[in-house]
Design a protein around this nucleic acid. Structure first.
Lengths: 341, 341
DNA sequence: TTGTAGGCGTTATCAG
DNA sequence: CTGATAACGCCTACAA
């Protein structure tokens, strides 16, 4: 079953392609009669404009690209969902690409999207992104562009973020408030801005409370996995048996740590309080239930697409566009893994 | 920064567009000298063919559509990952759409992909898909099409599945083997073939072992959520306090059930053994560790794309195509939640 | 009110 | 070896 074209409809009706095209788009200068005839036939033949041709003419594909480090991840799944839903509402389709936390792949994916000529690009940087070149290129080419979650601060694009320092501070202060004296931090990799900020939030909050910062209490994840949570909990216990609080970069890591502490029959929160970050669904299910920082992910996806849409619209109208940054709210969620001593 | 075109290169070099095009595609009938000149300039100007024009000419977009019920789901995330990676390897991009388990939305998404003129469609049906019309349309239009996981058996397309009956049988037999006498089943919704098959596997295995099937021991999920796991565990305990085994349609549901049983201090597997389905990562983390059926998801994504690629290739060559079905292996994973009484 | 003509950028055919 | 020409399907000045 071949797709029908304007030409065919025109031939069948004995009129010109132009008239058919206009009739379908409800141009005022087509007689109601022909309009009806055209529309009826189009309906009957199941006509849909060939998007390839439309793309070529309009130079738009109504498709955007979304690059994320990892699809199989509770946080990013929710971002994807937010982006897809919001895009759908506005008549856009979403192509999803993974960087697998690799800068090289990330660059390649950006190139792919250039070639595909998507109308806009959404990106959350990989952990080993310490080079802006490909991002600068997106900006130079004038492609609508929004960064979210893991961003390059200096690139002039719209951004959707949370205040990681503040959020980390919330978590750390909570541990201090319930009486923790020696707090370890399992941090994320060196490069990502959010890992840096969460670390800074931790450090500053300690100092603000008169607790000397000790770099030996900081453990650095390479991959931010469950397994690393397990491993670092073991190391912490070995190196500093008197630690009474752990702030983990992410719930997944916290869950790993709790698993290990449970195995070793360490009481949580009795001996050690644990707090995570991101408010993953699983945190509520485990024993003890995990205290955490609520980080909106679905909302972040929605906000990211909305900013992109703004830019796509204003560029289409030929206008210039000034990047905007949206900062989403976070909050402390206290459950069982942190309780007053 | 505007994109360069063949025309511009041709003008700069004082040759024809045709020659430029041929040179770039390494046609044998272009002199090495012009070839080099063209390629150098193209490189320098950062030329990439306008994909919109290429699409129009070749009637291909090197893009496929993937429709799944829900993005935020460990099983489907892995499928997505598999599909994206395999597509990437073969130079295809993937547009992802969600049906949100709604037939109406699913139909709409199929239409969107028609209009977008993707080269192929991958789909896992929503739970309330009890109507094939839109799927038939894909076949009639001759669009390469693969169903996976939740399929419509009667639609003549390639398929990637597991043997759900056999797998469910494995789980049920295991419960019987460790001494369970009264086994409840928390099943999936009415429509999906895999929910039906898992139920049948459960039922037949009971009967094969001389255990009378009792429909009162079957609880039907609407949404297959954690919450339903909690709720049905409660109901099971209330209605049948002597149940000593539970087979849940999915790990997520099993985790909910275990949560409830833990809360009520029911010993697992002492009093009740629990087995899930899908081998979700979290099953290893909880207490007790969850026994389950290993269901390959990443591999399913890869297989689905591979079958689609086969069909896309053979259709391009004008050949006919006979649908194939790939059945992936499953296996029993015994952990702590099921142990010999 | 309708139609003609040109072009979007590429590819394929066929002559020169 | 090179190039003119047409075509993919649609859109939009501009004519008629």
């Amino acid at each position: 079953m071949k797709a029908t074209t304007l030409k065919e409809i025109a031939a069948l009706l004995g009129i010109s392609i132009t008239t058919v095209s206009k009739a379908l788009k409800d141009y005022p200068d087509v007689s109601p009669k022909t309009k009806k005839a055209v529309k009826d036939l189009a309906e009957q033949l199941n006509f849909t404009p060939n998007s390839f041709a439309v793309n070529l003419r309009t130079k738009e594909s109504r498709t955007i690209g979304l690059i994320i480090p990892e699809v199989v991840h509770h946080f990013f799944s929710n971002i994807i969902k937010g982006v897809i839903e919001e895009a759908d509402k506005n008549g856009y389709l979403v192509i999803i690409l993974q960087s697998n936390e690799s800068l090289e792949l990330e660059k390649k994916q950006v190139e792919l999207l250039f070639n595909k000529r998507v109308d806009g690009i959404l990106i959350s940087l990989s952990n080993d992104s310490n080079d802006d070149h490909h991002l600068k290129k997106i900006v130079t080419r004038g492609i609508p562009f929004v960064q979210f979650d893991k961003i390059a601060k200096l690139i002039p694009s719209s951004k959707v973020i949370i205040n990681d320092q503040k959020a980390a501070s919330l978590a750390t202060q909570h541990l201090i408030d319930i009486g923790c004296k020696k707090i370890a931090h399992i941090r994320g990799p060196e490069n990502p801005q959010n890992a840096i900020d969460r670390f800074l939030g931790y450090k500053k909050t300690l100092e603000k409370n008169g607790i000397p910062f000790d770099s030996k209490l900081v453990y650095t994840c390479q991959n931010v996995t469950y397994e690393e949570g397990v491993r670092f909990a073991e190391e912490i216990l070995r190196d500093h048996p008197d630690v009474d609080g752990i702030f983990a970069i992410t719930d997944l890591v916290a869950v790993g740590a709790i698993y290990y502490l449970n195995e070793k029959n360490i009481e949580i929160p009795g001996q050690i309080s644990v707090i995570g970050f991101s408010n993953w669904f699983m945190g509520q299910v485990m024993v003890p239930k995990l205290s955490t920082i609520d980080q909106p992910s679905f909302e972040m996806g929605i906000a990211a697409f909305s900013l992109l849409l703004e830019e796509m619209n204003s560029r289409r109208d030929g206008g210039s566009f000034t990047p905007r940054t949206i900062e989403l709210e976070t909050g402390l969620i206290v459950r069982e893994s942190t309780l007053k001593k």
